[in-house]
Structure formats: C-alpha cells, structure tokens
C-alpha cells in the first residue's frame, strides 16, 4: 500500500532507490569518470598525442611517459586515454541504435503477436541469432571493405535481437493489462496505444538492456580489434592488447596491463551499475 502524499513518478522513485545503493553509486561514479575522459578526448583536451612516435622504444613509466612507451615509442597512457573514447564511440553508437531497433521491433512483434508482422520479425531474429557472430562480422567487414562502421553495423545487427525478445515478451504481458484495454475502449488508435501506453512501460527494460549492450559492445570491440576485424582508424584497447603480444614475449608488460586494466575496470563498473539499475527500476519493487 502506498499512500504517500509526495508527487513522485516511478522514475523519481527509481532514482531514489539507486541513490541509496552504495555499490551502484560507486560504479556509476567510475563510469562517469571514464565518460569524462572520453569527453576530454573528443574536445581535444587530452589524449591527442596517441599516434605521435616521439619517445624511445619501451621507455619505462616515469614523469614524462606516465605508463611508459610501446614498441615504437608511443606514449601508452595517451593511447589508453584515446582508447577510452573509441570504447565510448562504439559502446554508445551500438547501445543506442541496437536498443532503439530492438525496442521498436520487439514492440511491433509483441503488439501484433501471432500475426504476420510478428512471424516475420521472429524469423529474422532466428536467422540473425543462428549466424556465428565473428563469422558475421568478418563477412560484413569484408563486404563493406574498409568502411570504418562495418563493426558497428555488425554488432547492432546481432545485439538488437535479445532486446527485441525481452520487449516482445513484456509487450505481450502489458497488452493484457486493463489500462491498454481502457485505451482501446476510448478509441485510441493502435499506433498511440503502442507508443504511449505500452512502450513507455518497457523503458526500464530498454535502459538496463542498453547498459548490458554497451558492455557487450566494448568487449566485442576489443576482441574484434585484437583479431584485426575492428577499429581501423585510431587506437583501441583491443589494438593495444594486440600489439602487446610481441612485447609480452620480450618481457614488457606495460601496454598489456594498461589496456586490460582500463577495460576491466570499466566493464566491471558497468556491470555493477547495470545490476543496480535493474534493481532500482524493477517495477515490482518500485511500485510495491
């Protein structure tokens, strides 16, 4: 029973819950810190010297090169900073677009469940899910020869299906709710029912799903770049790890450790944040 007199939307309540979740807030802080780093790179405040070959090869960490230099004398710290931007580039683009696509497709499939639109979308999702991811990326990268967005497109094309399935399930559930029937009784057109009454109630799924996709995209980017299928212009943690393979054999670990730690901390923080977000947004717990 909730009879509070405060004017609170469910979002405000979720934010209130999130704020009291210590781990959630710490991880959010870490994520924001990374975001500031990426923003700085975009704005040209730092990380601009990532490609300059100026130092000696394998300089040790020191006041000039904070984390040392790599095999051709580039500043590892600069490169790691710049890679943060690459990670957010990939993560944001893929998360936003695949979530939008997934939400839309899932919403349509759910609203028209058991009709041809639904069958078609389900079939498409089945096909996409059946293709091995890395093969798909390789094929696409090859087909789009040199297009720097091949990787993004491949990821969006594969990642939206999970979101769509979740949203479809939720929409089918929501469709049975009486407020949807009330909207029909009022004479609301179907388009409005879907976009105004049903989809807004899947936002919590979309938000959580977006954070999960974000992490997934960053991780995949690293692996793809490592395999040479990913980032082609610029640098990324994956590329750094790829170059470091030679260095590790020679006993120089800075490049490898830096790139993997940057990656690890971000992924970890993001995962914890996604968990906290899920808890905070769970409508059962929020509205109870």
């Amino acid at each position: 029973m909730n009879r509070s007199r405060e004017r609170t939307s469910l979002w405000a309540k979720a934010w209130y819950k999130l704020r009291r979740d210590r781990i959630g807030m710490i991880s959010l802080g870490v994520v924001l810190l990374y975001f500031v780093v990426a923003l700085g790179v975009w704005l040209g405040l730092w990380g601009q010297g990532w490609s300059q070959v100026e130092g000696p090869m394998w300089a040790p960490p020191g006041p000039k090169y904070w984390l040392g230099t790599n095999i051709i004398g580039q500043d590892i710290f600069e490169r790691a900073l710049y890679s943060t931007r690459t990670a957010f580039d990939v993560g944001l683009v893929v998360a936003v677009l695949s979530t939008l696509l997934g939400g839309l497709m899932g919403g349509l499939a759910g609203y028209f469940s058991n009709r041809w639109a639904d069958e078609l979308i389900l079939w498409l999702m089945g096909v996409l899910d059946a293709i091995p991811f890395y093969l798909f990326v390789a094929a696409l990268a090859y087909a789009l020869q040199g297009n720097p967005y091949a990787m993004h497109i491949a990821m969006i094309a594969t990642f939206w299906t999970t979101t769509a399935r979740l949203v479809r399930g939720e929409v089918i559930k929501l469709k049975q709710f009486e407020f949807v029937e009330a909207a029909r009784a009022i004479g609301l057109p179907r388009r409005l029912i879907l976009f105004r009454h049903i989809l807004p109630n899947t936002f919590h799924i979309l938000l959580v799903q977006a954070t999960i996709v974000f992490v997934g995209a960053i991780k995949s980017e690293v692996i793809l770049s490592f395999l040479g299928l990913g980032v082609t212009d610029g640098v990324s943690w994956g590329l750094m790890i790829a170059e470091s393979t030679q260095e590790v054999q020679a006993g120089h670990f800075s490049n490898f450790v830096t790139a993997s730690s940057f990656l690890f901390v971000l992924v970890m923080a993001f995962n914890l944040f996604a968990d906290a977000l899920q808890d905070a947004l769970d409508p059962r717990k929020v509205s109870a």
Binding site: F177, F179, A182, A185, G187, S287
Partner: peptide, 24 residues
C-alpha cells in the same frame, strides 16, 4: 466509425491497479 461510436460506450475495470497507465 467504431472509434466515433466509442464515445457513447465505456468500460470500468475490476483491477484498479492494472487499469491505469502507471507512467501517466
């Protein structure tokens, strides 16, 4: 025409928890 006719007939539901859009 049904949409227009809906003005003249309405429904009230059982479940006061499920019959209002939670985010409106």
């Amino acid at each position: 025409a049904l949409t227009a006719a809906r003005r003249r007939m309405q429904i009230i539901f059982q479940d006061p928890y499920a019959s209002l859009s939670p985010r409106r």
